[in-house]
Design a protein around this nucleic acid. Sequence first.
DNA 1: ACTTAATTTTAGACTTATCTAAAAATATTT
DNA 2: AAATATTTTTAGATAAGTCTAAAATTAAGT
Lengths: 221, 221
Amino acid sequence: MHTQTEENYLKAIYHLSTKKAEPINTSAIAGSLSTTSASVTDMLKKLAEKNLVEYEKYKGVRITRKGEKVAINIVRKHRLWEVFLTHTLKFRWDEVHSMAEELEHVSSDELIKRLEEYLGFPRFDPHGDPIPDLLGKISFPSSLCLSDCEPEKRYTLTGVNDHSVSFLQYLERNGLKPGINVRIIEIQEYDKSMVVELKSKSKLSLSYEVSKNLLVKNYGE
Amino acid sequence: MHTQTEENYLKAIYHLSTKKAEPINTSAIAGSLSTTSASVTDMLKKLAEKNLVEYEKYKGVRITRKGEKVAINIVRKHRLWEVFLTHTLKFRWDEVHSMAEELEHVSSDELIKRLEEYLGFPRFDPHGDPIPDLLGKISFPSSLCLSDCEPEKRYTLTGVNDHSVSFLQYLERNGLKPGINVRIIEIQEYDKSMVVELKSKSKLSLSYEVSKNLLVKNYGE
DNA sequence: ACTTAATTTTAGACTTATCTAAAAATATTT
DNA sequence: AAATATTTTTAGATAAGTCTAAAATTAAGT
């Protein structure tokens, strides 16, 4: 259908589109794919040729409905493989991204359908990101940041904003991952750091940098 | 490590080495990979450069110990994915080959180790072919052909010689797959076809062409 | 608004893997 | 053993994706 490289460009453009306003500029894509602007320009022409993006010289690019469909399908595959790797094969959540990055390109739609079924139709991946369904529908996750929450209340972790290995490993080491419940004990005024209590009654101090990158929902919701 | 293409060449050369006598000639490789002899010549030079094969112009090629290690590791990955696809995702055995062909190249050794463990260290794939272990050791399967067996005795199917989709589908339709027990009722002298009885007491006539491609072991062994 | 800075595109080159067609080497046939 | 046929290799081209360096365009600063 499309080459692996085309798929990676589409995925990058799609992800950028959900974060920054369109149109997406060349260097942003180059940055996120660790390649040069020259290579990106070449590929944008190719993708525009196939109606996967709308591209105007010097004006940046926006993904089309058709391109978005392809991108979402790759995201779907990626996230289902991540669930498989953590849930079934017991990898840690900080280990699975690069493996899923490869698996997402080789797996046929039929294989993914079966995998999804086997996994019990999970709606979120190990990092709390939503898994698009067969039709491309994405159930939107909580976008409540722990940093915006109030003392004394309880919250359930649902996901992360920062997907870097170092952040995930930090969380792992401190027993934090989606599904975990925390109670905010206090918030320091001067640096916005907070102390939270885990289920085990152990207390943990989280910097503002950390709490800003943690997504939660109200306990019990 | 090695490109996907290099891996496919090595796998093809390895498989040919186990069937025909070495050295393997260019056109045999071209045939098994559906490419041209010219392309094969180019690749043989490249593989020889890396000490994965011993290659002498016009004299054919033989795989080195180093190349064999790589090839066996790919075969291992391929067969473990086949077990996963049939056993876990419930694909039919005639469907899994092409999917495994893709998966074998993307999976890291660590992923495969975990997959093997999850699957319970299977020793044979769905077609009865042995799965090399981590060290490359291959437990040799029965090489007894059903066509060489005797009437009245019972046998257990262990594998196939012909891996084509059409043959596998034929077997599937007739309830034949590894693990199944059969009793030979009679062998026709004029065309060497045989009638076998299945567990369900139903009788099945197998042409010589079919029985020649079925591997068995003695019942109970 | 004009100069400077930053970004984007083009141009040309390189790599990997492929092909066709011609040349070279090996096998086969009579 | 000479002629013919087959196989293998070389030579040159093509396609995808990448790079560097130069040219073109847009954005920013004074």
